[in-house]
Design a protein around this nucleic acid. Structure first.
Lengths: 240, 240
DNA sequence: TTTTGGTGCTCTGCATGCAATTCATGCCAA
DNA sequence: TTGGCATGAATTGCATGCAGAGCACCAAAA
């Protein structure tokens, strides 16, 4: 009944999967993909966990066919790793991969910021300001989770303001994987102050509609986040 | 027996699908995805064509299950468009989308060039030089197809030299879609001279290990390619 | 004790069958 | 003639059954 299977037997923490209580949505495979994505990003399904079709399908209350389709989907997104005739596994992220990942995210967000500086609408700028204010409030209150959520919304909004569906798409795919790494990292409260300040500078650059500066600041910000996260990475996430 | 179904009846050109003669490969779904990708990029399956599962599976000599998985795969890659309870369609590319597409490719290739300028290995540089020479030869000989193939190899090699799997991944996904647009464009021989010269300049920047210049040149090059291609786009690709 | 060959089981991969939804055709009424 | 509607076929979506590949465990020999 436990869909999580670690490569070699180890103390398995119970994984809770609601039997399938979700509302009227699109196809089951889509729902399954969404759920699995959430479970993987949240770390409920830890990196390296084997995903056995029969067990997962039973846990999700669906049959193997839509589940397989969902797994293929997540494989393309890079969240799971399929090997022929073997159980798919939740993708691992070694330190090198995290470095590359944030490098790529920085590249995309830089381009997005440059475009956004030219194209962002006043309403979006206003929303960015509100989010920044809110984030600073959560920062001051020490609310880590809320801070992260706001932070993510800000980055997503900047990318959206670039008005480029392909950049946005690429960013989303990479962001999901970054979230995994983020969950595995220890609290990096040390970087809060820095991060908030950097966000303020980025917002200022966007308001000034300075593409070069906005792009550079955002890329640097993501780069810093990556290195900070890398430093705080739990070096022994699953394997002993 | 004809897997191509145009939205409204029109003279359908015959689509040739080999019954399944390929050698020992991975899963059928993978083979199917690869084949369909090739057919879509080549334009054999034109944009907007409805992909009926039973017909396609029969044409490919496989059953519907692996075909469905392949279609989901291509949907994530953005080559086909799935709508619930309707036949999947080959994704369309309107002019705006092409603009955005090349914008995104330019962004990624710029980042890749900047990284490549720092990381490219001497052997890769040597290979780039050879490809450039070869491409110039094909250019001089007026061999359009060979020129395009070489051009693509050069871009792929530059991205590979950046040593970032995520950028490479994003680039590949976008590149497939760009190929579709390229097939729909009229001959842009007018840009040959320009393009070859730009490639020479990019190579020089990489040899000089100048990230900023290499990135800017490559981004501009891609941008020019995009606008040229956009100008030569067949404005009535399928619909009357 | 270590290594090698065998054996059984589990799991994936694929094919097929059935139900639900959608689209098209034709009919009827205004 | 035109608009709306009902009916039918076609197609997707999902579940299940079966064959093949891989892995683990076990036994036997060096």
């Amino acid at each position: 009944m436990d869909p999580v299977r670690r490569p070699r037997g180890r103390p398995r923490k119970p994984v809770l999967l609601e039997p399938a209580g979700l509302g009227p949505r699109r196809g089951l495979h889509d729902q399954a993909a969404e759920r699995l994505r959430a479970l993987i990003v949240a770390g409920t399904l830890p990196a390296g966990a084997a995903l056995v079709e029969t067990e997962l399908s039973a846990a999700l209350g669906i049959s193997r066919t839509p589940l397989r389709e969902a797994l293929k989907l997540l494989a393309v997104e890079g969240l799971v790793e399929l090997r022929p005739n073997r159980s798919p596994r939740v993708a691992e992220l070694c330190a090198d991969a995290v470095t590359e990942l944030f490098e790529a995210i920085a590249a995309i967000e830089r381009a997005a910021a440059e475009l956004a500086a030219r194209r962002i609408a006043p309403a979006e700028l206003e929303r960015l300001r509100r989010l920044q204010t809110e984030m600073e409030a959560h920062h001051a209150a020490g609310a880590l989770a809320s801070y992260f959520a706001l932070n993510q919304q800000i980055h997503a909004l900047i990318v959206a303001s670039a008005r480029n569906a392909y950049l946005r798409e690429a960013h989303e795919a990479l962001h999901a994987r970054a979230e995994i790494a983020r969950r595995r990292a220890l609290d990096s409260r040390a970087r809060w102050d820095e991060s908030v300040a950097e966000h303020r500078a980025i917002l200022a650059a966007l308001e000034a509609r300075d593409p070069e500066r906005a792009g550079r600041l955002l890329a640097d910000h993501v780069g810093h986040t990556g290195t900070a996260l890398l430093a705080g990475l739990d070096s022994t996430p699953d394997a002993a």
